[in-house]
């Protein structure tokens, strides 16, 4: 996997296409994970991830290296995902059968999550920040500091979100929260 330094070196040498060919595999999962954590929808997250890479392709020649490459990419992804989420929320109403089904699916989840599907529903029902933190932390196994960078939050705040998310999930997994500390 290419490092940021290698990608930046290619950009500065005017070899944008080669830089982009390294950038996509290096950031694909992280961009997708960030989008998925915010949008909670795999197809929408993939579509958004593709749009983000198109934006990066267009903006890469103007990247001046003042911000870290990763910070720049996460900011673009976060903004695009939040914008897409706002658009989607405006378009969706509670009379939508798909939304009703989603709500009913969450509320009818058993008290103890015995299978992955039930656990997923519990994760989706977590507060936004907790869900995003837990998704980014486990999806691509990123360290807390990088999850914090991706979410644009301080590391300690992310640790708190992760702790609370684990405590909520411990309850539905039928294990004591202190066992996950």
């Amino acid at each position: 996997m290419a490092t940021d330094a290698e990608i930046i070196q290619l950009v500065q040498a005017g070899r944008g296409r080669e830089a982009f060919d390294l950038l996509v595999p290096a950031y694909r999962r992280r961009v997708f994970g960030l989008a998925y954590g915010i949008l909670r929808d795999r197809a929408a997250a993939e579509d958004l991830a593709q749009e983000v890479f198109v934006k990066l392709w267009q903006a890469l020649p103007r990247y001046d290296g003042r911000a870290q490459l990763s910070t720049w990419i996460y900011a673009i992804t976060r903004n695009a995902a939040i914008s897409a989420l706002r658009t989607r929320r405006r378009a969706v109403s509670l009379s939508d059968p798909a939304v009703l089904e989603e709500v009913e699916g969450v509320t009818s989840t058993p008290a103890v999550a015995t299978d992955d599907a039930a656990l997923r529903r519990h994760i989706e029902a977590l507060p936004d920040r907790q869900r995003q933190a837990i998704t980014l932390y486990y999806l691509d196994e990123r360290p807390v500091n990088e999850v914090a960078e991706m979410m644009g939050l301080p590391a300690n705040t992310v640790k708190t979100h992760l702790h609370r998310a684990r405590a909520s999930l411990a309850a539905v997994l039928g294990v004591a929260a202190e066992d996950l500390a």
Binding site: P25, F32, Y36, E46, A49, L119, Y138, E141, V175, A176
Partner: peptide, 27 residues
């Protein structure tokens, strides 16, 4: 052990959450 089991289960849960094959070509 509880934390390790939890982490392993969460990693398994997210293991298949990924883009479809041919992502870069579609981009």
């Amino acid at each position: 052990r509880g934390r390790a089991d939890f982490d392993a289960r969460m990693r398994r849960l997210f293991a298949d959450v990924d883009t479809a094959p041919g992502f870069q070509a579609r981009v």
